[in-house]
Amino acid sequence: MSSLQRPVASSQAQPVALTAEQAKVVLAEVIKAFGVPENAQRLEEARENAGNDMGKMLQFLLPVATQVQQDVIKAYGFSNDGEGVLKFARLIKSYESQDPEIANMSGKLKSMFLPPMTLPPHGAGNGGLAAS
């Protein structure tokens, strides 16, 4: 295992400060965790239950994705709950503009459990605004 992986002894929520390089390591482990057969199967089942319904995706898919992330990030000092996942996501987001590799990995992670966003056709729904 990595040298920066150290189980947290206390349950106190301490701010987690990871460097960009450490964030890459954790992010890579999270992505790898989504590829573990049992996690991939759980995600696929949740995806099938949700279909194309965004509400059902939030109900079925998001909890599975959150759990997979929690299982990894708790070893790096993040709390083992939804708040820990949100803090991890904010940390990763803060590095995306500085580090193209983190931005790429973050996009890959999101694509594993978020549906692709389709944009409306060009010019549709512009509220009547026209270039003058």
Rank of each mutant, 00 (worst) to 15 (best):
Q12P: 00
Q14E: 12
P15D: 13
V16H: 08
V16Q: 08
A17V: 15
A17G: 02
L18R: 05
T19C: 05
T19E: 06
A23K: 05
A23W: 07
A23C: 15
A23F: 07
A23R: 07
V25P: 01
V25F: 03
V26N: 13
V26D: 03
L27P: 05
E29V: 02
E29Y: 07
V30N: 12
I31H: 08
A33W: 02
E38N: 09
E38A: 13
E38Q: 15
N39D: 08
A40I: 01
E48Q: 12
N49H: 12
A50F: 04
A50N: 04
A50M: 08
N52K: 12
D53K: 02
D53W: 02
M54Q: 14
M54E: 15
M54R: 09
K56Q: 11
K56D: 10
L58K: 15
Q59M: 07
Q59C: 04
T66K: 11
Q67D: 14
Q69S: 15
Q69D: 04
Q69E: 13
Q69T: 15
V72L: 02
I73T: 05
K74C: 04
A75Y: 11
Y76D: 04
G77W: 14
G77M: 10
F78G: 12
S79Q: 10
N80I: 00
G82H: 03
V85G: 08
V85R: 08
L86E: 08
K87N: 15
A89M: 08
L91Q: 13
I92T: 09
I92W: 02
K93W: 04
K93N: 13
S94P: 02
S94R: 03
Y95M: 00
E96Y: 02
E96H: 01
S97M: 10
P100F: 06
P100S: 11
